[in-house]
């Protein structure tokens, strides 16, 4: 029952991949090694395709993996598996939050959670900056980033525009 296994593997991935779409990548490698449903090369392609197609990266990767494994139905199964765990857990979290709404405990909870979550985002930002600007293609990347930084306030109302502008500069700067 390949469909059932697919559901089970993505259910596990959904529950244990904490920290967003990219956290699912190690799980996908694990699935690849364990079952031979697809090759490592295909997986690399999936990650690339997931990045440039609209939609959250984790969802795209699950869809693509599912489709490679057993067709469109496979795609539906892997997505359902991926979201079932987080959905249930998040709904529980919402019940908890509503129950303790406006209590001292919850205010203090957020007073701790928000700075910590912001620190983790900052850490991701630092890591990505080092990787994308200071390790590879440093000067070109630095110039594009600065241009994007100054353009952003003008396109703030349409945030996805900045993605297209970034992609455009990426191609433009590599032509010359």
């Amino acid at each position: 029952m390949i469909q059932l296994l697919l559901f089970y593997e993505f259910l596990k991935t959904g529950i244990f991949a904490i920290g967003g779409g990219y956290a699912t990548i190690p799980f996908l490698y694990h699935i690849c090694e364990k079952y031979n449903w697809f090759t490592v090369d295909e997986l690399t392609d999936m990650i690339a395709i997931s990045n440039i197609t609209p939609g959250a990266v984790g969802i795209n990767m699950a869809t693509y993996t599912g489709i490679k494994t057993c067709g469109i139905l496979g795609g539906m199964i892997s997505i359902t598996g991926l979201i079932t765990g987080p959905f249930i857990i998040t709904i529980f979290a919402i019940y908890f939050l509503n129950k303790y709404k406006n209590t001292k405990l919850l205010k203090n909870f957020f007073q701790g959670l928000i700075p910590a979550s912001c620190a983790l985002l900052t850490y991701t930002f630092i890591q990505l900056s080092i990787k994308n600007i200071f390790v590879e293609n440093n000067l070109k990347a630095l110039i594009i980033t600065l241009i994007l930084f100054f353009i952003y306030p003008f396109v703030r109302k349409n945030p996805s525009l900045i993605i297209f502008i970034g992609g455009f500069f990426g191609i433009l700067f590599n032509v010359f």
């Binding site: 690339a48 930002f125 293609n137 980033t145 994007l148 930084f149 900045i162 992609g167 455009f168 990426g170």
Partner: peptide
């Protein structure tokens, strides 16, 4: 190359 630029846009959004 498209990717390369998109990744930099992500930095700005983040």
């Amino acid at each position: 190359n498209l990717f390369f630029g998109i990744r930099l846009s992500m930095l700005i959004l983040l």
